[in-house]
Computed example of a mutant assay.
Amino acid sequence: MSNGIKTALIIFGVLAVFSAGAVLWGIGQYNKAVAMDEEVRGQWAQVENQLKRRFDLIPNLVETVKGYAKHEKEIFENLAKARTSYFQAGSMQEKAAAAGGLETALSRLLMLQETYPDLKANESYLKLMDSLEGTENRIAVERKRYNDAVQAVNTYRRTVVGRFAAALAGVEAAQYFNLPEGEQQTPKVKFD
């Protein structure tokens, strides 16, 4: 075998190894983009699980409070509307907005306990409040995990390699779960 053929084979071998490595690296980046997208979806499902739990607790809490606060009809109507909006929402953003609306109405409902001291002593109410408090904590944890997954996928999509891998895998930018505008302030409740 001549030196020219040996050199050509060595160059061909190096190029083949380099090409194979580049292809494997590219597949790894593609798979990373897909995995990150699935992580966002999975975390959103966990947020929805906890929001559903909250929405399931609300009717029981409302019924308990209704006996004490019959004239607080607006609060109960707002809770019912927020609950309906959540279950009719089609997208993650619509569900997040509905959940934010519920948080406002729910905080007004919880403020009623200051007006009705007997309500605070009611055993059913206390149990529901404990369940709701636990659910709110779970929602906060799952919302943070979801937003962390969103941050990871969005950061990856902004890198040079990630931009191409995400485009190839069809991974879109994810939306953070933020409170809607106007719902970031503490609601004010007035009793006349």
Rank of each mutant, 00 (worst) to 15 (best):
N137F: 03
G100D: 07
A98G: 06
L102D: 02
K95H: 11
E114T: 08
M92S: 11
E136T: 04
M129V: 15
L110D: 03
L112H: 12
T135I: 08
L102K: 01
M111F: 02
A105Q: 02
S85W: 01
P117E: 13
T115F: 06
A99N: 13
A99W: 05
L106P: 01
K127D: 15
L109Q: 05
Y116D: 15
L109H: 05
R83K: 09
A99S: 12
L126F: 02
L110Q: 10
K81A: 14
T84A: 13
L128F: 14
T104P: 00
M129P: 00
K81S: 13
G101I: 01
N122L: 04
S107T: 12
Q93V: 03
D130A: 10
L128N: 09
Q88V: 05
K120G: 09
P117Q: 13
N122Y: 07
K120W: 11
K120R: 12
A89E: 14
L109W: 07
Q113M: 10
L128H: 08
Q93Y: 00
E94L: 02
S131Q: 14
A97D: 07
R138E: 14
E103V: 06
S124E: 11
Y125N: 06
T135A: 11
S131Y: 08
N137D: 14
E94I: 05
S131M: 09
L112N: 11
G100Q: 05
L102I: 10
Q88G: 07
E103S: 08
A82W: 04
A82N: 07
G90E: 14
D130C: 00
Y125R: 01
N137R: 00
T115N: 13
Q113A: 14
Y116W: 14
N122G: 02
A105H: 02
E94F: 04
T115Y: 10
M111T: 12
L132G: 03
S107V: 12
G90N: 09
R83C: 04
T135K: 02
A105R: 02
S131G: 10
E136K: 03
M129A: 13
A105E: 07
P117W: 06
Y116Q: 10
E103Y: 03
L109R: 05
L109A: 09
G100N: 01
S131E: 15
N137H: 12
M92I: 10
L126P: 01
Y86W: 01
T84P: 00
E103D: 15
L128P: 05
Q113C: 10
S124C: 02
L106D: 07
T104L: 09
R108D: 13
T104V: 12
L102Y: 00
S131K: 05
R83S: 08
T84E: 15
T104W: 07
Y86T: 10
A98P: 07
T135C: 08
S107H: 06
M129E: 12
G90D: 14
N137M: 03
